[in-house]
Amino acid sequence: MFAPTPDRFATRDQLLSMSGLAFVEAILDGELPPPPIAKLLNYHLTEVGSGRVVFAGTPMVDHCNPMGTVHGGWYGTLLDSCMACAVMTGVPQGSFYTTLEYKVNLVRGIPLGTEIMAEGRVQHSGRSTGVAEGWIRGAVDGKLYATGSTTCLIMAG
């Protein structure tokens, strides 16, 4: 079984000692490690603000389905990451979130090697839930590739 190590994840104490916004900013600034899945799927955090998060990424051959196109899970993971992290920016110190559900709409296929931006924006941030929307666009041309929505559960630590 995989055991988290301090160099791969923030500790629970680190997570609960700061607001959600400060936590996501610490990942952006390199003070806390990014999630390991970001390396595996070739994306990284580029912008963080209150209620808004942006990731940049580029799908590669390793992210393809058997038909040779970008797997829908790649789109879903990028959208889940940007939307849920946007919700995290509104989570108070001592709390954290988990995704309850998310929906993805693929608009068109992303050509391999195309850099994209995945942006998440909060629509509602409450005591127990957060709702956000997101989209994936081409970094150069702004072409829309996918949209999404999420509901996250906010929990006290």
Rank of each mutant, 00 (worst) to 15 (best):
L32H: 07
A132D: 07
A86W: 03
R52V: 05
A139E: 11
R121S: 13
L16S: 10
P33N: 11
N105W: 07
A86G: 05
C152E: 15
A86P: 06
M60G: 10
A26S: 15
L40Q: 07
F96Y: 04
G120R: 12
T46W: 01
T5K: 06
G51A: 04
L41R: 00
C152S: 10
A132S: 09
P59N: 02
I116Q: 12
A146V: 11
G72F: 00
Y97C: 05
G130C: 12
E47V: 04
K103E: 10
G57R: 01
T150G: 08
S95R: 09
T69I: 04
R127A: 15
G73N: 04
L144V: 13
S19R: 02
A10K: 00
G157H: 14
Y43C: 08
V54H: 02
L79T: 04
G126D: 15
M67N: 06
P92C: 11
M88E: 09
T98P: 06
T129N: 12
L112P: 10
V53S: 04
P59Y: 01
L45W: 04
D7T: 01
I37E: 01
E47S: 10
G138C: 12
L28G: 11
Q93G: 08
V91I: 14
Y43N: 05
L15C: 09
Y43A: 03
D62T: 01
S125V: 14
A132G: 13
T58H: 02
C152N: 15
G126Y: 10
F96A: 14
D7V: 00
I154Y: 08
V61L: 06
G126T: 06
V104Q: 06
A146N: 14
P34R: 13
P92A: 09
L144P: 11
M88C: 13
W135A: 05
P36D: 03
G76L: 00
A22E: 12
G113V: 08
W135T: 15
G148K: 07
E115W: 09
D80P: 00
A146C: 12
F55G: 03
C64R: 01
L106P: 05
T58I: 03
R121E: 15
S95C: 07
T46E: 04
G113T: 11
S50N: 11
F55W: 02
G73W: 02
V131D: 06
I136N: 07
H124L: 09
L21N: 13
R8H: 07
R8Q: 13
H44P: 05
A3Y: 06
P66A: 00
G49W: 05
S128M: 15
D7A: 05
P34W: 05
G57P: 04
T58P: 02
D7N: 02
P111I: 14
T151S: 14
G68K: 02
T98V: 12
A38G: 13
L112K: 08
L106C: 09
G142Q: 08
R108Q: 14
G30L: 07
G20Q: 07
P36E: 02
D80G: 00
G126R: 14
A139K: 10
T77F: 00
T58A: 13
D80K: 01
T46D: 01
L16H: 13
E31L: 12
G68N: 01
M60K: 05
F23G: 03
